[in-house]
Computed example of a mutant assay.
Amino acid sequence: MPVDDRWGLRRAVSRRYPDPAALAADTGHAARLSTYLTDLLTPHGLTLTPDALNPVRGQSYGEMAVELLPDEPVDLLVLAYDVPDISPGRAVSTYLTHVCPGSPMSFAVSDQGRAAAFTALSLMQTYAATHPRALLIAVEQSDLPYDPGVPVALPAAHAGIALHLSASAEAPLSAVTVLPDADASVDALDGLAATTVVLGGGMAALAGDVKADRVILADPAQPMTGVWEALAGLDLATAGRVAVADYDPALRYLCVAAFG
């Protein structure tokens, strides 16, 4: 079955979560999480940060994502994240299938850094012919209760976004690419003829080289969700052709998605 050439973004919404997860108040969960993380960290010579889980300050991706679910049925739901969840025992995408209208097929994309949502979009596009009503949820929580031993960019706030995708959309998805082993470059925007360009923190230094009517810089304190929060703030009816671009300096992924 061919993909509708107008399949793409219908609307985007974003949300910040000022408080820890409700689950964080469960002392039993905190004790189990401490044991779990200690068992994982010890073989690598790493330890929990003192009092890191007293109290638990992180967020649960299951709790965050539920707040972003639509009222209408969905065929496909993909969860994208980078920072580990404070509820590692829950298969979040499976849980979301249970609570989301339409009982959609679902899966998660992780270990991709800032590229996670871009990778998810690319995968979802391949399902568009058979699963046109799709929902991409990207979430990041800001607490990591241990030093991972390598440089990491933690977000400043718990944040989540939802991209609602469907056939005959306001802003069709015309291109999405994730280039591995790449340098940050605006050359990836060539040929897209974007009217509005949203740049993530990994591309902010190149803003002066972008040729577009409007360039928007995403919140650099939100490494993964920042660009999508900025996209959610646009009026898709007037923004014209929109390109969203970001670069992960640790993994060297250059990511671009074009809508409209």
Rank of each mutant, 00 (worst) to 15 (best):
M124W: 03
L96K: 00
G102F: 01
Y81H: 15
E67R: 13
P88R: 04
L68H: 02
S93E: 10
A91Y: 12
H29V: 11
E72A: 08
S110F: 09
Y95K: 02
P20F: 01
L40G: 06
S103A: 13
C100G: 07
A22Q: 11
T119Y: 00
P101V: 02
D82M: 12
A108P: 07
G102N: 05
T42D: 14
A120S: 12
D26A: 04
P73A: 01
D51M: 13
V83E: 01
G58H: 05
T49C: 03
L48W: 03
V109M: 06
H98L: 11
D26C: 03
G58I: 05
A116T: 11
A115F: 05
E63Y: 02
T94Y: 12
A115W: 02
A31D: 15
H98Q: 14
A21P: 08
V92A: 05
G89I: 04
S106P: 06
S87L: 12
T38L: 05
D85E: 00
V109S: 09
R90H: 12
H44V: 10
V99T: 11
T49Q: 07
T27Y: 08
P55I: 06
A52R: 09
Y95F: 15
G45A: 03
S106C: 08
D39H: 09
H44T: 10
Y61A: 11
C100T: 14
A108M: 09
S60T: 07
H98M: 12
T47I: 14
